[in-house]
Write a protein that binds this DNA or RNA. Sequence first.
DNA 1: AAGTGCGGGTAAA
DNA 2: TTTACCCGCACTT
Length: 370
Amino acid sequence: MLKAAHDSAVEQEDSASRHGEMTSWDINDIKLPQDVSQTDWFQEWPDSYVKHIYSSEDKNAQRHHSSWAMRNTNNHNSRILKKSCLGVVVCGNDCSTLDGRKIYLRPAICDKARQKQQRKCCPNCNGPLRLLSCRGHGGYPVTNFWRHEGQFIFFQSKGAHDHPRPETKLEAEARRSIQKAKTAFSPSSPRLKRIQEIESLTGAMPTQEPLPSILSKPESQAPPVNFMGCFNKSCPEPTPSSCSERLPQPRRAGEDRAGDGPAWSRSLAQHVLPVAKGPHDPFRSGGHDSLQGDGSCGEKSPLTSSGSCLSAPPYPAPQGGLCPMAGGAQPHRQLSAPPRGCEGDRGGGRHQVCLNYCNNDMFLNLYPLQ
DNA sequence: AAGTGCGGGTAAA
DNA sequence: TTTACCCGCACTT
């Protein structure tokens, strides 16, 4: 994967250089270019040593989003925000789901939450979870840098991720919601009892239907068709997400929206199941990360304590963009963007198109739990 | 509850 | 000096 990552980086650099100013700066430069004629589409999965210039209007850039699990790192420089990669949480048993997928959970960003997370069990096999830390930057985690200058947001990544992609933030949130819902619907759940009572009174409530509407957070629900479309309230318009896999397809600076239809809306079914790939060494020791999993599985997760798991665990949920990740200003253009830019190709053809698969199979996986 | 950003602090190279 | 990382705090989601 490293070579592939490198190739990808080269590819991106090529692309960048074609567009001029892109590579002639470093995040630490005193002055950054302000004569940028084209800004990049937001990149949800930046990897390798890449730089991007986003519009300051880009919501995702404003929020310093990444689908990698990046935590804030203090670099004692308030002008440059630095984040380092937390890696990915894998199953200590290296299990696979029925459909052959590996478990790649998103490490919780919050230290406490991450410690809690590691005491939980694999949602698939109930085995211990293990944090596979990122060592893609000289043995240290990949770092991302963000800097706002004028009407642009400069992004620079150092290091190539040496581990599989975790769930995206929204996938992780969705999973948590599902778990909550499942807990709420455990046989002993008063809530479920109440619903059953109502059901028995009305005789009209199909058992299959109520669940989605009761999932804890509306924005975390999985609307059947538009699941990732506007999954998030922060996505005021149907943007083609992340077509995150597209290259930093340049757009004219200042050009923000126009009207092509969202590519993701017709990309449902394009996801190629990612089976564990990549150079990560699952047996690597914890190293510097004090939060490395201890392999114990002391705390029963709500999911497993009920004696069943999601019938087909959604992990790794389709590794792809979520609309909110593009909540910002990239509404179009990528429809014509050549698929060659798919970063996912690095992973061995993990993705075939540069579109947002809208996590349809996550959706399909989530529903069976009803 | 978890995510995010800031900043004080320490340690190692 | 630079880089990595820990921690607590405040604020947001």
